[in-house]
Design a protein around this nucleic acid. Structure first.
Length: 583
DNA sequence: CTAGGGTTAG
């Protein structure tokens, strides 16, 4: 007995498989493999420790003398659930459930079974597990049900997740936080923010986890006011000092909502900073087009002894491409591999193509694509095609388009781009060909939408939206807005070719007269008091017409308007935009 | 410390 106790102590201090093998040998020699406490500890280390070895655990398990205990099974189920073959957990579970010699599965068993279902993306298995949970009587366990919620959500079944959550008899803060995280991961950020209201009504408190989840959703939808409210709560409760996740989420929220000063302020107050903190600044500055500042933060990061990762470089390269810093971009792209041994991925190549392309170096942009390992990705060719539109380069535009067609990836937007290139050089036959192609092939379009936060509420607009209760007023405001701002816009489109292109653009992006962002801006002007800044987020890129119209709206109404589009930020103020029309 | 929750980029 004394021997067993000392082996258990040894196992508790074990930190490597080398040691474990030695202990295992002693266990065998002393005949203590029959002691379930000892064998369970052995197995737990192999199956679940980060220094363990799952195949060794399986081997050990298969040689254990009966009777086996639930602990043994649970260790193996737990280990398998996060190993390379999570479905093994399901087989083990079935064996436990069938076995007459082992006690029934417990809450631990189900927790890891659900982890396995979540990871293996097996929605049907998730439902089966749900059935077993109900049958065996764990549907009132808040821990099991929280896992079940995550399992459904992780399999894209957010509705089922919500149903399980709603039926948990005693929901605790962890389960609320988990629900928020599920909405975030599913991209349902408005839903995540709504949870906060429910929590407030029910008097559920918030902790660091809650604030991080909410801030992440605020960042995604551009809800700065909401985010600042969360920030005040976090500061009052000392979260910011205590918890680096909260600081990181705050920096990111400010940066993503266009409040770079706010981001810098929080950054300056943080006692400890990790790679997430620095990256949030580098990426934030990059997407705003402040490549130079992005670079200086990167250098400070190195001096602070934090090792950059591929996200750091992505931020840097975005900054370089938005600001036209070609030389710097090349330098950091090379540095990424030579100094930090990081492989560029599609996004990094995309930045390089964009950077060269917009700077007019179309040949070098093409060279980047050809020499990249992802030259079969439509995104890169599409980026090149947009650059060709800016520089009116038919020859290169056709090369890009041919590659898209070759990949069967050309969409209506691409056709519109190439048509635009033809139009810009007066080739009306080219325009007609593109038009025909869109019609004949029924090439599909991406629906556009825009978010705006007004009076603490996030509202979403689509093209020609008439779903809002105040639709009529919004359209009246839109009419007024256009009549006041449009006459100030320079270079109205009038030529025949441009009209043809416009027709194509209607097909391709967010439609004709009322792009969703214009509705959002009209709504914002109407619903907020004089002088308030407007912040909107949209899923597509700002089109040229909306860009010039928004500039004039900012002047006529004396409003700052921040637009976050698919790739970057635009700050409109007094008739001009922070991108200096370089985008 | 036996089972559940969080941040950048996708």
């Amino acid at each position: 007995m004394c021997r067993a106790a000392s082996l258990v102590t040894l196992l508790q201090g074990c930190n490597s498989m080398r040691r474990l093998r030695r202990i295992h040998a002693q266990v065998i020699v002393s005949g203590l493999l029959r002691n379930p406490t000892v064998s369970a500890k052995l197995l737990a280390f192999c199956a679940t420790s980060t220094a363990g070895d799952l195949s060794y655990a399986r081997l050990l398990f298969s040689h254990l003398p009966p009777p086996l205990h639930l602990d043994h099974w649970n260790s193996l189920i737990r280990g398998s659930s996060r190993g390379p073959a999570p479905l093994d957990s399901l087989h083990l579970y079935n064996a436990v459930a069938r076995s007459s010699s082992v006690s029934r599965p417990d809450a631990v068993t189900f927790s890891f079974l659900l982890k396995a279902c979540e990871r293996s993306k097996a929605a049907a298995k998730c439902r089966e597990a749900h059935g077993s949970i109900v049958r065996i009587g764990f549907s009132s366990s808040v821990i099991v049900c929280t896992n079940l919620t995550r399992c459904y959500a992780g399999n894209g079944l957010i509705g089922d997740a919500r149903k399980v959550f709603d039926e948990i008899p005693e929901r605790d803060l962890v389960s609320w936080n988990s629900m928020i995280a599920c909405y975030c991961r599913a991209g349902l950020h408005e839903g995540a923010l709504k949870i906060y209201d429910e929590m407030r009504v029910l008097g559920v408190g918030l902790d660091e986890f809650t604030t991080v989840g909410l801030l992440s959703s605020c960042a995604h939808v551009g809800a700065l006011n909401f985010g600042i409210q969360v920030q005040e709560f976090a500061e009052k409760n000392g979260f910011l000092e205590r918890n680096i996740y909260v600081g990181n989420a705050l920096v990111d929220m400010h940066a993503k909502c266009g409040s770079l000063d706010g981001a810098r302020r929080v950054f300056g107050r943080m006692r400890r900073r990790d790679v997430f903190t620095w990256n949030s600044m580098i990426v934030g500055l990059g997407v705003h087009g402040h490549g130079d500042e992005s670079i200086s933060f990167f250098q400070r990061m190195l001096m602070a002894g934090i090792r950059p990762n591929s996200v750091s470089f992505l931020g840097l390269l975005m900054g370089c491409s938005h600001q036209g810093l070609v030389g710097e971009g090349i330098k950091y792209f090379q540095l990424m591999h030579s100094e930090f041994n990081l492989q560029p991925d599609l996004k990094h190549y995309g930045c390089m193509v964009d950077m060269f392309g917009r700077a007019g170096e179309l040949d070098r942009a093409l060279q980047v694509i050809r020499s990249s390992p992802c030259s079969d990705d439509p995104v890169l060719w599409r980026t090149l095609l947009s650059a060709c539109k800016i520089h009116k380069n038919v020859e290169m535009g056709e090369i890009a388009f041919k590659n898209l067609a070759h990949l069967s990836a050309q969409n209506a937007g691409d056709c519109a781009l190439l048509a635009g290139i033809y139009a810009s050089v007066g080739d009306s036959q080219g325009v007609a060909r593109m038009r025909k192609m869109v019609k004949d092939q029924g090439i599909k379009t991406t629906p556009g939408w825009t978010w705006i936060e007004v009076n603490g509420e996030v509202r979403k607009f689509v093209v020609g939206d008439t779903s809002h209760p105040d639709t009529k007023e919004i359209y009246e405001k839109l009419k007024e807005m256009v009549s006041r701002a449009a006459p100030l816009c320079s270079a109205p489109v009038s030529s025949k070719e441009d009209a043809a292109v416009e027709a194509l653009e209607e097909l391709s992006e967010n439609g004709g007269d009322c792009h969703s962002e214009m509705l959002a801006i009209a709504c914002g002007l109407m619903k907020t008091s004089e002088g308030t800044s407007l912040r909107i987020v949209k899923n597509l890129r700002v089109c040229k017409d909306c860009h010039s119209l928004t500039k004039m709206v900012s002047r006529v109404y004396g409003r700052e308007i921040m637009v976050r589009d698919r790739v970057r930020f635009h700050h409109f103020k007094d008739g001009s935009c922070s991108c200096s029309d370089y985008w």
